[in-house]
Nucleic acid binder design. Structure first.
Lengths: 265, 265
DNA sequence: ACCTGAACACCGTTCAAGT
DNA sequence: ACCTGAACACCGTTCAAGT
């Protein structure tokens, strides 16, 4: 009898029996924090063969892969392939796929590089938003990457920079955090390209037939406004227009200016 | 020599050779449109054994699964398991995993049920936002579901309803669409719970040690504002506060009211 | 027309070896 | 200490059968 098979089977049973058997083994967050922040730690000299890889190389490969093939094309297997290594070897350098996501996000965000702040807090915030958006546009997969609450130095530095620029607005701490969340979420969601959104991306090629069919369906179900958008070719996912972005951004900032506390600029 | 193996190999080669070999076989969108909208089509009487399943049953199972285990726990395998059927059998009813996502989204959104509109367009829009948010809160996985541009009757009905309620604002068609996109995106992104966000959800249990470590890292790197949030326990992902949502919503609407064209309410 | 069984091309992760 | 080989538990999808 194969002991290994039995063991695996037992493991599976345990998983199925678990009351809310979703949670993976708890991640040691404190440990990950140190790992993610400690990128610049000099490689310790250790006995045994020296490493053939480095975290930086793994990140490089991941970025290249994602840039070329999107989130869907990113996997540990492909990263390893690109580095001429077996997949398992990567686990000497990273914890899990999840940690790779965090590292890629950190690299793609980079440290915030903003134009010098002026006296207008709202101008400063707009600059921040455009700068962050540039990062998203440079890496279309970035907004689609599955990552938990930000814990890396770069993501947090962007948040810090925003809070700094919101200081001039006169919003109290709670309101400032809410404003920051709103702005951050807006930049991210407005940078989400539909091609990255769906796992299996479908070329929406046959627009002719589609608008035809959709148009009659919408008429049939009495949705005149959406129908108007479709026939006016306004309902096009592809065009992530820059004017669209500015519209939303201006709207949010105008709204913030309206908030009780802020002083007029 | 095994013909099958050869064939598969050839297929793989073809995939690898493809210039931008990401795209899956193009989805026939017009066909999917008909399938997604035609839920109420009476089952045709056909020769052969009658179906043991229905699209509705598959959707039921998918919803139950996602409600219980989140996006990560949703798969064709599990759906089939729950219906006492092999995975392959599902392909008699649905096109692909992608189509299942669309169907689940449609079901979870449901047809918009809104309180009667008043004279205040901004009040009407707020009601819309809260109603949609309720749908997201009822199905925490909904905001995390990977779905392309909305094409189903329910998603589009929600959009239609919003555009209808924006009519009173005096915004022109372009501005109204932008406002709708902004509002829709805000409701979605503000409903995204971090537990659904990351593929392998990590229980951020050891807050004690984490805030400790993070605090000193932030001090070291001169991020006083973020540090203040952490020590003030404000930087908690869990609490998707209702006041937070209202803040952002009010802000957006106040901003819209500021827009050149709209008439004051 | 439906469902199954078998096979395929992927995934992330773990463990026992080799050096 | 590092890397490989082998194995595992998943995924979605296709195809040739059976009824």
């Amino acid at each position: 009898m194969d002991e290994r098979a039995l063991e695996a089977c037992a493991r599976k049973e345990a998983r199925m029996d678990a009351p809310a058997g979703d949670q993976s083994p708890p991640v040691n967050l404190a440990e990950r924090l140190r790992r993610v922040w400690g990128a610049s730690i000099p490689p310790r000299v250790r006995p045994g063969p020296k490493a053939s890889l480095s975290r930086e190389q793994i990140i490089d490969a991941g970025i290249a892969l994602a840039d070329a093939h999107g989130v869907a094309g990113l996997s540990l297997v492909r990263v390893a392939e690109r580095l001429n290594v077996t997949t398992n070897a990567l686990y000497r350098y990273i914890d899990s796929r999840d940690e790779l996501n965090v590292l890629l996000q950190e690299r793609a965000f980079g440290a915030p590089n903003l134009p010098a702040a002026s006296d207008d807090w709202d101008e400063n915030v707009k600059q921040w938003a455009h700068a962050l958006r540039d990062r998203y546009l440079a890496h279309p997969w970035l907004a689609a990457l599955a990552v938990n609450v930000p814990i890396g130095p770069n993501s947090l530095a962007w948040l810090e920079a925003l809070l700094d620029r919101l200081d001039g607005s006169g919003l109290d701490q709670t309101a400032a955090l809410r404003a920051a969340t709103l702005l951050d979420g807006y930049v991210k969601s407005s940078s989400l390209t539909p091609s990255e959104l769906a796992a299996r991306t479908a070329p929406i090629a046959d627009t002719q037939a589609v608008t035809q069919v959709l148009g009659s369906l919408l008429a049939e179900h009495h949705m005149p406004r959406v129908a108007a958008l479709v026939t006016a070719k306004l309902y096009q996912p592809a065009t992530s227009n820059d004017d669209d972005f500015t519209f939303g951004l201006n709207c949010i900032i105008a709204g913030l200016r309206q908030h009780p506390t802020p002083k007029p600029r």
